[in-house]
Design a binder for these strands. Structure first.
Length: 501
RNA sequence: GCGCCUAUCGUCUAUCGGUCAGGACACCAGGUUUUCAUCCUGGGAAGCGGAGUUCGACUCUCCGUAGGCGCGCCA
């Protein structure tokens, strides 16, 4: 049987470094054995999924050299590869589960579930999850209520007692008590499947033989094997990779680290360095090699060599590896890399109109535009405070801008302008006042090129990184927001801006 | 709170019961270099704690401890 693995990203945000990490191992595993690597888009969350995000993920993985044999862009014999285009399949599968009694309709309103949750968290007996009320409904009664047009979801029927015995390819046997497994919603009220259903159905239909994914999924594995059993399908083999961590050991998050692949691209990390470094996370070559290419990794890949401690993503080591590669490049190639990276005519044509009015000598250009090609701009943290706004205020504004930028659908001059104009209005500031600290954060200076155009050229991810750097600088100057202040700010943000943090 | 996973230098890791516990990043010192960087050489730095199994445990088992993840009509 042909080895088939897949990466199944959800297009809900910037392409995540963790996606590349998991994709890399799936790719290497499949290619090592002459198998196929598939890309599937898990866009079952209608609220948050977007085509822009999907495009960005595809582009980022391509940039890294992780090519797939089948996917939404290249097609394949198991198409479509976008879950939003496969809903009939899931609905049909869900119907079969109900017919077999493996799933049941649930009419509980979100309000009741929220109430239930609240009650459960106060009791602290350890039980959190659906109480099974609708599981007891007779099929006639359920049928009647469905016919009456009552909104409902489909839930997985989970055994009440005993242990679920699982196999993870890296850990061996794992036992999880059934009574700790929630009656997972399989089909939402909008008719869309949840991850759990869609994932199992697609992995089966697409003949995935090995599921290599993040450890965060280990605890929902019982639901998945239960589904395979209910369908009467042979489950694939499962391998759960340890999660990438922040320096404080928590799961890698943008709070502490840039997590967008696009940021690393923008900062001038070579794709082969990122692949090399990611291949060092939780993995080692039998011969101790630490410098390698994607092809070399695939050639010698042995999934049993994955180690299980959660690796901390260390920017310094990544940069050190990148430096070594840059130094080894022949001059012509280095020049070529710089050009494809962004030092090219196309960029200058964008920059020049901004710089021209500010030039007295040609020699003024490069210093003026340098920040557009930099990663971290160095400036005195105090500069952020010489803006007529208090440190606390600036910290809040930076955070608000991050949220607004993250949630903006597009990255265009108009979109950026709107974000800040709206912010100025909601904050009761003149645009000029509001922007003052942002000039420092983005360009490192009070006098600079037009800021919205600069953000556009820098790209969303580098812009976000600059705001993050500014918050860090502020924290150094003693103006960090406390956890409580942040929570408070998020509440205000939701109320005033109508966004989620 | 409950369940599961994990545990070697600060960090990434090697070690398939017997090693002076090795390498890489970072750090420190010295050398090369007009400065710096590079490069070279050297150095400090680790088996979470306690029982057990064994002639012998970093390695196997158990109990602690710590960390992580999960407990959504998100994935």
């Amino acid at each position: 049987m042909k080895i088939r693995t897949r990466i199944a990203p959800s297009p809900t945000g910037a392409p995540h470094i963790g996606t590349a990490y998991v994709a890399l191992f799936n790719y290497a595993f499949a290619k090592h054995q002459g198998g196929e690597f598939i890309l599937r888009i898990e866009d079952t969350d209608r609220e948050r999924s977007s085509r822009e995000a999907e495009q960005a993920i595809l582009a980022a993985l391509k940039w890294l050299g992780l090519s797939w044999d089948e996917g939404p862009d290249v097609g394949g014999s198991f198409s479509p590869y976008r879950q939003s285009e496969r809903t009939a399949l899931y609905q049909d599968a869900a119907r079969r589960l109900v017919a077999k009694g493996a799933a049941y309709p649930c009419f509980c309103a979100p309000e009741r579930l929220a109430e239930l949750r609240r009650a459960q968290t106060t009791v602290k007996d350890g039980f959190l999850g659906y109480d099974g009320r609708c599981a007891a409904l007779s099929s006639q009664e359920a049928q009647r209520r469905i016919q009456a047009g009552e909104a409902h979801v489909l839930r997985l029927r989970v055994p009440a007692e005993g242990d679920c015995v699982l196999r993870d390819g890296l850990r061996g046997e794992v036992r999880i008590p059934w009574n700790k497994v929630d009656h997972q919603v399989l089909l939402k009220a909008d008719g869309f499947p949840t991850y759990h259903l869609a994932n199992v159905v697609d992995d089966h239909l697409m003949e995935i033989t090995h599921v290599i994914r993040g450890e965060e999924w280990l605890s929902s594995l019982p639901k998945h094997v239960l589904l395979y059993q209910a369908f009467g399908w042979q489950p694939p083999e499962f391998y759960h990779l340890p999660l990438l961590r922040n320096p404080d050991k928590t799961k890698l998050s943008k709070r502490r680290n840039p997590v967008s692949i696009l940021y690393y691209q923008r900062a001038g990390i070579l794709p082969e360095t990122l692949i090399n470094y990611l291949g060092l996370m939780a993995y080692s070559f039998a011969d101790g090699r630490e410098q390698f290419t994607l092809a070399e990794l695939a050639e010698s890949f042995d999934i049993k060599r994955v180690s299980l401690g959660g690796p901390i993503f260390d920017l310094q080591k990544l940069q050190s590896f990148n430096g070594r590669r840059l130094r080894e490049l022949p001059l012509d190639e280095l020049l070529g890399r710089l050009q494809t990276w962004g030092l090219n005519e196309e960029t200058w044509r964008k920059v020049l109109p901004l710089a021209q009015p500010r030039l007295n000598q040609l020699a003024d250009l490069v210093p003026l535009a340098a920040f557009l090609f930099a990663d971290r701009q160095l400036y005195e943290p105090a500069a952020l405070l010489n803006t007529g706004l208090s440190g606390q205020r600036v910290a809040r504004l930076l955070r608000l801008a991050q949220w607004e930028i993250e949630r903006s659908a597009e990255w265009t001059l108009d979109a950026i302008k709107q974000i800040f104009e709206r912010m100025a209005q909601l904050e009761g500031l003149k645009l000029k006042q509001l922007l003052a600290p942002f000039y420092i954060a983005i360009s490192g200076a009070v006098v600079s090129l037009p800021i919205f155009d600069s953000m556009l050229i820098l790209g969303r991810d580098m812009t976000l990184a600059r705001l993050q750097y500014a918050r860090e600088a502020l924290a150094e100057a003693g103006c960090a927001l406390t956890k409580d202040e942040l929570a408070e700010l998020e509440k205000t943000y939701r109320a005033q801006y109508g966004g989620g943090g």
